[in-house]
Design a protein around this nucleic acid. Structure first.
Lengths: 215, 215
DNA sequence: TAAGAAAGTGAAAATATTTTTACCATGTCA
DNA sequence: TGACATGGTAAAAATATTTTCACTTTCTTA
């Protein structure tokens, strides 16, 4: 990167950047042209050549959408796909086997919320069914990003999502004296204790993130 | 939709569905083929024809990626783009004019969090700078989806994000007696009161959503 | 002020990518 | 057996995208 950019070149550069953010892939010459009001793809072509010569851009000659911005060191890789996670339906949610069947929706989740390459296929979204964890800032209706995992792999005091009595709940998980303790963070709720493998209590996995839409 | 699908047809159907979720557009025949282990695009082509005949699929003949699943009535339109919103940097954040310059990152946000076609270009992401709204489940470090809007357009008791003393804060907004009141939801914090247009207090806009990544 | 760079227009040519067609083979199943 | 599903090869057709060519306009600047 060396040469200074002209105003127009900068516009093109910024457009490519913005386009990539939104579409997670580079634009075509036509799309750039439309955005900048350039009717001829050749006009765009020359802009790109200039950007390339000045070292802001690399092109794969001939390839469709073969543009690569060079300086960009965005904290999040732009090429990552955005995982789309199933939102478990309320009605199906009290049967562990059916957690992933008939999701009511899908939610696109930025990879930022899946730390260290956590596999999106092991994750799902559930809604908190009560205010039992309001002390931890989780309210009824909040969307929980859940990493499905067997309860044996959990550490004590992790936040977990579980199915108890037809409800999907957030709770603090503690395993002690061969009992699973589900601790609320709200004085009006009671701790619940289950023997392992009690059919009335199914631990889905650990909560990795919380999303709340305000009214 | 009528005919029953064969196992293979179902695989193709499900793949298209999954692909659409992730890429927000239909796959090409080749991509389907790769996924199902079919070397010839023609093999795929026939699968698609079968799906179309059975009424599971509509095709735009000749068009690239011209596939449309028919039963899919997902609550969220799959064709929506996923907006990518700037995350304001902490250092630049105490100068209102620089809110959008030098974002530290971008976060892809599902349109679900932008109700009623709220323009993504008016939104940005900030981090809560203190625990002043812990009573409302907003903690220091939480990501706030902020709809930028002049404070005059706000209703009383809305949750807002504001810049006060080098910090980006979440507060409850009340305008009364020609004063802006910023009310915390945490007994250890105090209500702050400013005259309108006090340079020490800038209201960025209303908070539309909250995202929290757990450790 | 003449030369050169930047920015364009419009059309045509060249490539890439994707879909369609034609034809062949195998297996299943009523 | 005959209809249908599955899959393969190869090539043709259609579409999408990039590249080149010829020529214009508008600045900048030595």
């Amino acid at each position: 990167m060396k040469g200074r950019l002209t105003a127009r070149q900068n516009e093109a550069y910024e457009f490519i950047r913005a386009y990539q953010r939104r579409h997670r892939k580079p634009p075509t010459l036509q799309e750039i042209g439309e955005a900048l009001g350039i009717r001829s793809t050749n006009g765009v072509f020359k802009l790109l050549q200039a950007l390339e010569k000045k070292g802001y851009l690399r092109r794969d000659p001939g390839a469709a959408r073969g543009l690569h911005l060079l300086d960009t060191e965005d904290p999040f890789a732009l090429t990552d796909e955005i995982p789309s996670l199933p939102v478990v339906s309320r009605t199906a949610s009290h049967e562990p086997e059916r957690l992933r069947t008939r999701p009511v929706a899908f939610l696109s989740v930025d990879p930022f919320f899946l730390p260290r390459g956590l596999d999106p296929d092991t994750c799902l979204i559930g809604r908190a069914g009560d205010d039992g964890m309001s002390g931890e800032g989780i309210f009824k209706g909040d969307l929980l990003l859940i990493e499905e995992t067997p309860w044996r792999t959990l550490n004590n005091r992790e936040l977990v999502a579980c199915l108890v009595g037809e409800l999907l709940l957030a709770r603090r998980f503690v395993f002690a004296n061969n009992r699973i303790h589900l601790q609320p963070a709200n004085r009006t709720y009671l701790e619940e204790v289950f023997p392992p493998d009690d059919p009335g209590c199914y631990i889905i996995g650990r909560i990795r993130a919380i999303f709340r839409r305000l009214p």
